[in-house]
Design a protein around this nucleic acid. Structure first.
Lengths: 171, 171
DNA sequence: TAAATAAACATTCATATGAATGTTGACAGC
DNA sequence: GCTGTCAACATTCATATGAATGTTTATTTA
């Protein structure tokens, strides 16, 4: 594991040599490292637009899935519900989304993106795509990696469900 | 992209169908999703020990690499320097680490883990390993995935360096 | 060597985060 | 139709986070 004391690259580290450590092959570490390395330049973009990361995640999900309730939004945005509610309040204050009362279930709040919000979202997505394209130009083919990530998540998710099931039965 | 409004699984989402969206194949999203799905149970463990995530990252890195200065620590822990300094203050207050003045460079603070800290770290790592083993029991072989992640990070990192280099020359 | 510059770490401070909890509405059993 | 239970979202509040900046020591330059 090489930390590179000299170069000026915050948030990152390489870790080859040093024998077989723990972190060296700890998946969450590697996943987070890859995420940060890929996302770093895009975070500058978000900063430029004054958009928090939680807000970006909400916008991206709404773009992907259309109008959604807060719970589904939180699930898809990989964020806790209160974090999403806070983000929505800020986005609504900026006129980027609107929350309407649910028709069936009056507890629900259906979140939709305004025209302005859609424009901003599209800009952000374009930028994200452009950055990714540039970054991955030199990289190997990724279809395999993507498939493995999805499979991994699905498998672990299923396992977690199974455990929750058992816990419920056991009481 | 299926959000699953019913089941009770915060922080997660599956996203198959719905055609080819953006998020659906956006690597940072998939990486973060995998990370969260894998890490979720371990976060309960951290909670149980009263250890913040940033603190865990610091301890894990120190375990892996031995005594380190704050900057190298921050790099390897994938965290900003102020975050690490805060974490260190808390860890030091709990008697889990100590900071000593650097011998060569008196600006540096060499961070080392106390006996208590090492014990706690070992417990946490054992728990992380146990959880991971259980989670990945059903999963396919991961050596390939790990290699791809490392390669991806290295490639993108190199590209980023290259850009920084050009910027400096141009400046 | 004095001065300017930069590097390592600490500190300040505004803000995002999320755990805990509150509020409102749905829904089951009676 | 009541009553209890649960679900969806909002709110409160203590805390982690990190950008900006300060302080101290190295290092370079004149």
């Amino acid at each position: 594991m090489n930390v590179d004391s000299s170069g000026d690259r915050p948030y990152r580290a390489d870790m080859p040599a040093n024998g077989q450590g723990f972190l060296d092959s700890y998946l969450p570490y590697l996943l987070r490292q890859a995420d940060q390395t890929l996302s770093a330049p895009f975070y500058d973009t978000l900063n430029h637009y004054g958009v928090a990361r939680s807000e970006w995640r909400v916008l991206a999900v709404l773009h992907e899935l259309g109008d959604l309730g807060v719970k589904d939004l939180a699930n898809a945005a990989l964020s806790p519900q209160p974090t999403v509610t806070h983000a929505l309040r800020r986005l609504e204050a900026r006129g980027l989304v609107i929350r309407t009362q649910g028709t069936q279930d009056k507890r629900q709040r259906l979140v939709s993106v305004t025209a302005t919000g859609k424009e901003l979202t599209q800009n952000l997505i374009n930028q994200a795509k452009a950055l990714e394209t540039d970054q991955l130009a030199q990289a190997d083919d990724l279809t395999d990696l993507i498939a493995q990530l999805k499979s991994l998540t699905a498998t672990v998710e299923a396992r977690s469900q199974q455990l929750a099931q058992n816990a419920t039965q056991a009481g």
